[in-house]
Simulated scan of single mutants.
Amino acid sequence: MSAEFLLGAASGIYWGDTIFYLVLFLVLVALIKHFAWGPITSMMEKRAEKIASDIDNAEESRAKAEKLESQRQAALKDSHVEASQIIDRAKTNGEQQKSKIIDGAHQEVTALKENAKQDIARERQDALESVKDDVAELSLSIASKVIVKNLKLEDQKALIDSYIEGLGKQNEVK
C-alpha cells in the first residue's frame, strides 16, 4: 500500500481528500435537491400551469368575443330588417291616409258642387218668381191706370217706361 500511496502522492492525487470532497459533493447535491430543487421545480410547474391557464383564459375570452361579435352582427341585421319593415309599414299607412284624404276631398268637392247647384237653382227660381210677381204687379198697375184713364198710345208707352224705371229703382233698394 505504501507503494500505491507513494505513487498516488507522487502523482499529486490524495484519495482521502478526493473521497472527502466526493462525499461532500454528494451531500451538497442531496441538500440542494431536497431544499432547492423541489421548490424551484414546484415554482416552475406552478408558473407553467399559470401560463397554460392564462393561455386557456385568453382562448376562452377570444371565443366569447367572437360569439358576442356574431350576436351583435345578427342583432344589427335584425334591426336593419325591422327598420325596413317599419319604413314599409309607414309608407303603406301614408299611402292609405293619402287615399282617404283624396277621397274625402273629392266627396267634399262633389257635395259643395251639388249644394252650389241647388243654391243656384233656388236663386234662379226665386228670381223667376220675383220677376213674375213684378210683371203681375206691373200688369195690374198698368191695367188699373189704363182703366182709370183712357190713355193714348203714347201715354201708355210713357207710363210703361216710367213704371219700368221705378221697378229698376225698387230692385236696387232690395
Rank of each mutant, 00 (worst) to 15 (best):
D119W: 02
K149T: 07
V109W: 04
Q170E: 13
E95S: 04
K113F: 04
K100G: 06
L167G: 06
D161L: 14
E95Y: 01
A105W: 01
K98H: 06
L151H: 13
K174T: 11
G168R: 12
E108M: 01
Q107Y: 04
D161S: 15
A143R: 14
L151C: 09
D134M: 14
L153C: 00
Y163F: 08
S141Q: 11
S139D: 12
I101N: 01
L128R: 07
L138I: 15
H106G: 06
K174F: 06
I101C: 00
K157N: 03
K117F: 08
L167Q: 13
K145F: 05
G166N: 07
Q96M: 04
V173Q: 06
K132I: 02
N115W: 05
D119L: 00
E114F: 04
N115S: 06
I120R: 12
K98E: 00
I101H: 00
Q96L: 12
Y163D: 10
L128E: 07
T110W: 00
K117P: 01
L128V: 09
L153T: 04
K145Q: 08
I102A: 03
D126N: 15
N115Q: 11
L140Q: 09
I142P: 02
A121F: 00
L128A: 07
E172V: 15
D161V: 13
A158F: 02
K149S: 06
A116K: 13
I102V: 11
K149M: 03
Q156P: 04
S141H: 13
K152V: 02
E165R: 11
G104A: 14
E129F: 06
A127C: 04
K152G: 03
K149H: 06
K174D: 11
S139M: 07
R124C: 02
L153I: 00
A116P: 03
D155L: 10
L159Y: 11
L138H: 12
Q96D: 13
Q96F: 02
G104E: 10
Y163W: 03
A127H: 02
K169G: 05
K100Y: 07
A121N: 02
I164L: 11
N150I: 10
Q118F: 00
I120W: 07
H106E: 10
L153F: 02
E165C: 00
K132C: 01
V131Y: 11
L153D: 01
N115M: 04
Q96C: 05
K149F: 04
K169N: 01
D161P: 09
L151N: 12
D126I: 15
H106N: 11
K152E: 02
L153M: 00
I142N: 05
L167F: 03
E172T: 15
G168C: 08
I142K: 08
E172N: 10
Q156S: 12
Q156F: 15
Q156Y: 14
L159I: 09
L112F: 01
A158P: 00
A158I: 12
S144G: 05
V173T: 08
E114I: 09
V131C: 07
E154N: 13
V109P: 00
A121K: 01
S144E: 07
S162C: 05
E137R: 15
L167V: 06
N171A: 13
A158V: 10
K149N: 09
A116R: 09
